[in-house]
Amino acid sequence: MNENGLIILDGLQKVYRVHERESGATASIKSLFKRKYKEVHAVESVSFTVEAGEVVGFLGPNGAGKTTTLKMLAGLLHPTGGDATVMGFTPWKRENEFLRNISLVMGNRNQLMWDIPAMDSFVVNRAIYQIPELQFKETLDELVELLDLGAIINKPVRGLSLGERMKCELAAALLHRPRVLFLDEPTLGVDVTMQGRIRQFIAEHNRKYGATVLLTSHYMADVTALCSRIIVIHHGKLLFDGGIADLSQKIAPFKLVRLDLERADLEANLEQYGEVTSRDETKITLRVPKENTSAVVSRILTELPVVDLTVEDPPIEEIIEQVFRGADK
């Protein structure tokens, strides 16, 4: 294990005890007095290291343990087992010096005050983080410019759109210039244009301040645009840790061959060339093992009435999908 990492997880584990509820009135009355508990292993022995200044994408389906891991790293949850350090601190001791240098943004929860303008929430944060006046002004000006907040920070938050609110949430989280930024679904529910803006901004912030970013998202585009490295977890276990290119190398050693044929009423068995993943009239997509690609393509060209043929890498979504399916088996 690298001892110099900024964020180090060593066998981090979280087990929840949740009570089991049976359906029916009798059962629910019984559960008022006596509850059955079962253990949910949200995170099971996850280890990885993140260097200062890295932007790492944290992927996994719902319930994979992403948020639980982020919460442990931000000091909101005590782990059941294992250890972690962030900037040399043990997060769940929640020392002020640690908290002053991190930020956690949760796409589905607001920290801004609902009834008054975001600017007033910023002022409260300035007092809490003891940000010097000059630095506050400087950072704020910059955030206003980069996130295009000029017209919205003086309106009551309740009147803002979801995207506008998210931009203000990001600004509120960055005013104290955190060295480590945890983003949990920062683009949740935000439209595509705004997603792009937010992505651009996060990249910019990372470049400028060298902040380390750990990001979870459902939108693969967030991850491919921002992260040079991805970590995939599923059922609380680490499945993959590496570059995006490596992921397709290691997990998806196949290419997609897209065909457009002259006629739809073909008798030839297409399965002999590769796995048919989609078929719509004359348009066919085949999944072909990487090492056979050139041989298969030349066979197709001689044996089938091809109008058009392209060979491409599978999209990252499909690769991840395959990882999860493989893990479930």
């Binding site: 002020n96 010096e97 640690f98 002053r100 991190i102 956690l104 929860r109 607001n110 809490i128 983080y129």
Partner: peptide, 18 residues
């Protein structure tokens, strides 16, 4: 209930005070 207590716990001041 809403889970927003997290934002108080994330602040570098006493959670009880805040």
């Amino acid at each position: 209930r809403q889970g927003t207590l997290d934002y108080i716990l994330l602040k570098p001041i006493s959670a009880q005070f805040m």
